[in-house]
């Protein structure tokens, strides 16, 4: 059974040899190739090469086309990234200084032909050539409601969302939705099969339940209707997913949920039942200090809660660069071993 077959069978609730195991190693790529981050991220084939090597080294089931989250801002006019040797790059230039700058957000007619998509496209091409059809190729795409935070800054976007509706807010959301649809299309056409749909504004950790019910879910529904639920994975950026799972399932037909480490796996499984794939997420920040035995015990605890009834995938969160390789092996090895179907 290939990793891709395993994932599809798990989503559909068919028998599998073991649960799918996803691991999100992004910043580790530069270190794997012995390159500085700026040099590494400048070449899509280097990113693909590192993804292939990392997957081979640890033995998990997925590869990423994501360079870093701020890449989306570059597609919308961001001119500067701030690189770090210790972690992911930061957006160094806000496309918008205020809501008066909505006109400065230019959505490309064709994302695939935008210069900032050239390297992700090369990365996807290589991944597709090397492991396409065998390993799921993942992309990360920010939802309509969350994207303005990357253009304007979270500090400025949140009060706008909490305030009364304005023509500028509507115009910005429409632009971001237009971009979202075009970006999903570009990534899919280039070879991405799994799209992580990132939307912290649909988590009750982030926004009040009333706001989610009245506003956020309508945009989730519109986003998903526009691109189709196939291959889309709902994710709240590390914030809890469980409180909104039922509403999202009912309104969108999404069939996969990437939980937060703060979610209870058993509760998420109870809510999704056999309607969707639950991706249990290990609190990987603790890998910085846990012993191998503690790592294995936590994997075992999660799998005991998630595996009964199937429809379960094991995954990691942000995987900070400081995590020792030994701990990555301990986590993945435990998930591969304990996740094997008896």
């Amino acid at each position: 059974m290939t990793a891709l077959e395993r994932l599809i069978a798990t989503i559909e609730g068919r028998p599998v040899d073991r649960i799918p195991v996803f691991c999100n190693l992004l910043d580790q790529g530069a270190r794997e190739l012995g390159l500085a981050p700026r040099e590494y991220f400048a070449d899509g084939e280097r990113v693909a090469e590192a993804q292939l090597r990392l997957r081979e080294k640890y033995g998990y089931d997925n590869v990423w086309s994501l360079f870093y989250v701020g890449r989306e801002a570059e597609l919308l006019g961001c001119e500067a990234m701030i690189y770090s040797a210790e972690g992911p790059p930061n957006v160094g230039h806000m496309v918008m200084k205020s809501m008066d700058d909505v006109d400065k957000v230019i959505v490309p007619d064709d994302v695939a032909r935008h210069p900032a998509f050239e390297q992700p496209a090369r990365c996807l091409k290589m991944l597709k050539r090397e492991v396409g059809g065998r390993y799921p190729i993942c992309a990360y795409i920010t939802s309509t409601m969350t994207l303005p935070a990357m253009l304007l800054g979270m500090e400025k976007w949140m009060p706008v969302l909490l305030g009364p509706p304005t023509p500028e807010r509507s115009a910005l959301l429409e632009k971001c939705h237009d971009f979202f649809v075009k970006e999903v299309r570009a990534y899919r056409e280039a070879g991405a099969q799994v799209v992580i749909y990132a939307n912290p504004f649909a988590s009750t950790d982030f926004m009040p339940a009333r706001f989610i019910r009245d506003e956020a879910l309508a945009w989730v529904q519109r986003d998903i209707e526009a691109v189709g639920a196939e291959g889309m994975v709902f994710y709240c950026g590390g914030a809890r997913v469980t409180p909104t799972i039922d509403a999202v399932l009912n309104r969108t037909g999404l069939r996969a949920f990437y939980l937060s480490p703060l979610d209870e796996v058993a509760e998420a499984k109870r809510l999704t039942s056999d309607r969707a794939l639950c991706c249990g997420v290990l609190n990987d920040i603790k890998l910085l200090r846990w012993s191998n035995d503690e790592v294995r015990a936590e994997v075992a605890r999660m799998l005991a809660a998630g595996m009964p009834g199937g429809h379960f995938l094991f995954g990691s969160l942000v995987m900070p660069l400081g995590i020792p390789e030994e701990k990555i092996h301990a986590m993945v090895d435990a998930a591969l071993e304990l996740g094997t179907t008896k």
Binding site: M158, P159, L161, L162, T204, D205, F206, M207, P208, A209, F211
Partner: peptide
């Protein structure tokens, strides 16, 4: 009960 969100904290603080 964790029933308050980041947005509520933000607005309350401001």
């Amino acid at each position: 009960d964790g029933a308050t969100s980041l947005a509520q904290h933000f607005l309350a603080s401001q």
